[in-house]
Nucleic acid binder design. Structure first.
Length: 111
DNA sequence: TGATTGACCAACT
DNA sequence: CAGTTGGCCAATC
């Protein structure tokens, strides 16, 4: 709104992630303007369960494509199931062909 | 109110 | 190659 914090910006970006796509914390953080805020993205996800809107945090992974934070979804295989449910293959807690499913906000949302 | 942590990333040693 | 440090913002102790 008038003064959206990083926190809210992260929510907006994550919410706009297309189905069957994934992005990384660093990509969002850099899109917001600071790579250092990547930790803030994780913080936002941690509080996402407290947020009023639903945040597809399962589409957000680290820069390796590893399902970091899967433990926060309520189960170790919940995140994997969600991603597979969208057509994304996950193996060994890592997204298969992460590059193909990678959705960069700095390239898609940058206007 | 100050210090620490947090689902990370990149660079340096 | 692996471990450490710096960085960013917000929330918790």
């Amino acid at each position: 709104m008038a003064d959206p914090s990083f926190f809210e910006k992260v929510y907006e970006v994550v919410r706009q992630i297309p189905c069957g796509r994934v992005t990384s914390y660093g990509a969002i953080a850099r899109y917001l303007g600071s790579a250092g805020s990547s930790r803030m993205v994780g913080w936002a996800m941690n509080s996402s369960h407290s947020h009023k809107n639903y945040i597809p945090a399962h589409r957000v992974v680290n820069r390796n494509g590893t399902l970091t934070g899967k433990h926060h979804f309520g189960g170790p295989n919940v995140m994997k199931q969600l991603l597979e449910s969208e057509g994304i293959k996950v193996e060994n807690n890592t997204i298969v062909e992460f590059k193909k499913h990678f959705w960069d906000p700095a390239s898609e949302l940058k206007y």
